[in-house]
Design a protein around this nucleic acid. Structure first.
Lengths: 265, 265
DNA sequence: CGAGGGTTTGAAGTGCATCAAATAGTGTGG
DNA sequence: CCACACTATTTGATGCACTTCAAACCCTCG
């Protein structure tokens, strides 16, 4: 399940072919530079980063792979470099709630440190993913011994918390088309112009789940947005002819004004 | 339970009448002992507690009082000793989402430290409240300089985050009666027997909002639970004749097994 | 006792879910 | 390059849950 040397194996071509990933050795300098770009390691000294890098390994996993399930003993913290991962919870009777869907630059599994070293949700790859993973124990020690890391962790937690407040608000107050509008707007780059094109990052079914609705509802809600001239859509490609219109349509029913920048990720 | 001296003061009626601030001297020893009972100050040395206590003040506020609103510059962190406070967000078009409702032992406003010193939600008293408040700046400095406080803060954040995951899950997967069932079960003491009595802690209208439903829906959902023999209810007093029955009814549609202890508060 | 807020009840409407089936898309092996 | 299998997405018809609007009821408190 959790083999460390996964990428540097015999069947390199096979992997490269099957997963389209460069089969490289663990490359500490590279990992260090990757880590240094992440909020958690903001302003952290090289020596500490080295410690993480040495304990870290790279891994690539295909779509569908379950990384861990809720209540599993937490061994790794993951940092996504590419691809998408779904975080979800399953109820006794089999229903599933999607907590979040993350991509490059995001970390998950980190909060296991504060939860008895067990994961509080399950994680599954939804688009082939490449990631850095390092042991929970390393993070745990770092947090206890390095105040800067603890502080970074605190801001990241705080950001997450706010995001979730928003999530709850949306589920309560926005209808399906509005939640979709909000989702689309959060995909926009910071310097949005009047209009723009973008691609849905993953399955419509998954977006639906992420937004707390059924695929059928999602489809129909998209149709509504289209009918109202707020978007044009073909396949996974979306065109927003007039961003301010869409902003009015969705963000009027939200407590946070439009470019909700700091909450994006 | 909490207050030691507060009630036996000079101008008690005046306070009740004029609503605002209890005009008594700060009582450091008492505040220290209050603080030491809170998770954030777990294992914190006396000297540090003194610093908080010296900067702290006690306050009593009547039902209805707005303590602060979203985006306000954050000046104080609040620790509830008695009463209930509602945390909520308001959208552009006037709708309101209740994020949480807190009581004795809970702290709020604390996360402003990580959010540019501004509150990310509004807070209003819903049942006359008595609380300790200390400046955000004091907490901020303490977090930066005292690793134990930072760590305590981290666990508290983490707990909140998990609670919110659950909240989101419930909004997605549970229906009105089930959400109410869950709410009631979380009011139960740890040593629940087969059956028990309890009182709704605040307005039904507010409970409804807290659970993301309308008062009418709440009322009807209670009626359903009653009809199914899961609860008996008169006014604000609820009797649960068979706790396991209610647990089955609600918790089957949740990812967390019944006594979801650690998430209660 | 009467005013006003909280709560319940009724009737009707809306939005989303569900079930079922058609359609579009994608990757497969021939 | 086509036919097939399989999955994602759309569409239609119907039902249920929750909301909305309106009115009655109830309780507390001056």
């Amino acid at each position: 399940m959790t083999s460390k040397t996964l990428v540097c194996h015999a069947s390199a071509e096979y992997i490269a072919h099957m997963l389209s990933v460069a089969p490289h050795m663990l490359d500490h300098p590279n990992i260090v530079s990757e880590l240094s770009g992440v909020a958690l390691f903001n302003g952290i000294d090289e020596a500490t980063l080295q410690q993480f890098a040495q304990a870290a390994s790279l891994r690539t996993e295909p779509k569908g792979k379950i990384l861990f399930i809720q209540e599993d003993e937490a061994e790794w913290v993951y940092l996504i470099q590419r691809g998408w991962v779904k975080m979800f919870r399953e109820t006794m009777d089999g229903a599933e709630a999607v907590i979040d869907v993350m991509t490059a630059g995001h970390m998950f599994g980190d909060n296991a440190v504060f939860e008895n070293d067990s994961y509080s949700y399950s994680a599954q790859v939804v688009e082939q993913v490449q990631m850095i993973m390092f042991p929970v124990s390393v993070l745990k020690k770092a947090i206890a011994s390095n105040p800067s890391i603890a502080l970074n962790m605190l801001s990241s937690m705080s950001r997450h918390r706010q995001q979730q407040h928003l999530e709850i608000e949306h589920l309560n107050l926005q209808n399906a088309p509005q939640r979709i509008g909000c989702f689309l707007l959060r995909l926009c780059p910071a310097d949005v112009g009047q209009s723009l094109n973008l691609n849905l990052p993953y399955d419509k079914t998954l977006i639906a789940a992420r937004l707390g609705m059924k695929p059928e509802t999602f489809s129909r809600a998209l149709a509504v947005l289209k009918k109202d001239g707020l978007i044009e859509i073909t396949g996974a490609s979306v065109f927003i002819p007039n961003v301010p219109h869409l902003v009015t349509y969705t963000c009027d029913h939200c407590s946070t004004a439009f470019p909700c920048e700091d909450l994006k990720g």
